[in-house]
Amino acid sequence: MKVGLIMGSDSDFPVMKKAIAIFKEFGVEYEVLLASAHRTPAAVREFVSTAEERGISAFVVGAGMAAHLPGVVASYTTLPVIGVPLESGSLQGMDALLAIVQMPSGIPVATVAINGAKNGALLAVQIGAASDAGLAKKYKAYRENMAKEVMEKNQKLQETVKSL
Rank of each mutant, 00 (worst) to 15 (best):
I82P: 03
T77I: 09
I6V: 15
G4M: 09
M151K: 15
S57Y: 10
L122W: 01
A19N: 06
E144D: 14
V73K: 05
G106M: 09
T78Q: 14
F47T: 14
A121Q: 09
A43D: 15
V15E: 06
N154E: 03
N115H: 00
M7G: 06
E46G: 10
G27Q: 12
A136S: 03
T77F: 03
H68C: 08
V72E: 03
G106C: 07
L164W: 04
I56K: 05
K137G: 04
S88N: 14
P85D: 06
L123Q: 02
D95Q: 14
D10V: 14
A133W: 07
V28E: 10
R39E: 07
K156R: 15
S163G: 10
P80R: 02
V125T: 10
M16I: 01
S105I: 09
A129Y: 00
A37T: 10
G8D: 13
P104G: 04
A136C: 06
F23D: 01
T40D: 04
E46H: 09
A19C: 10
E25Q: 15
T78N: 15
T40H: 00
I82A: 03
G128K: 10
A133S: 04
S11A: 07
V72Y: 07
P80K: 06
A74C: 12
G62A: 03
G116P: 03
D132L: 05
A121P: 02
V81A: 03
D95P: 08
V44Q: 13
V44G: 02
D10T: 11
S11N: 01
G83E: 05
L86S: 12
E52V: 11
L5Q: 11
N119S: 13
K162Y: 04
Y142D: 06
K2D: 08
N115Y: 01
G55R: 13
D12L: 14
L122C: 03
R54K: 15
V84S: 00
S9P: 08
V109P: 00
Q92K: 15
R143M: 00
A74D: 11
A67E: 00
K140Y: 02
M7K: 01
S11R: 12
H38F: 12
V84G: 00
L91F: 06
I56R: 10
A110C: 07
E53K: 15
E149W: 06
Q158I: 14
I22D: 02
K162A: 15
A136E: 04
G89K: 11
E159K: 15
G116F: 05
S49F: 01
Q126G: 12
E144G: 02
K118I: 07
L91K: 12
V15F: 07
A136G: 05
P14Q: 12
S75C: 08
S36F: 06
G71P: 12
A141T: 13
F23Y: 02
E52R: 14
E159G: 07
V101W: 02
P41E: 13
A35H: 06
K138Y: 04
A129T: 08
I100D: 07
A110L: 07
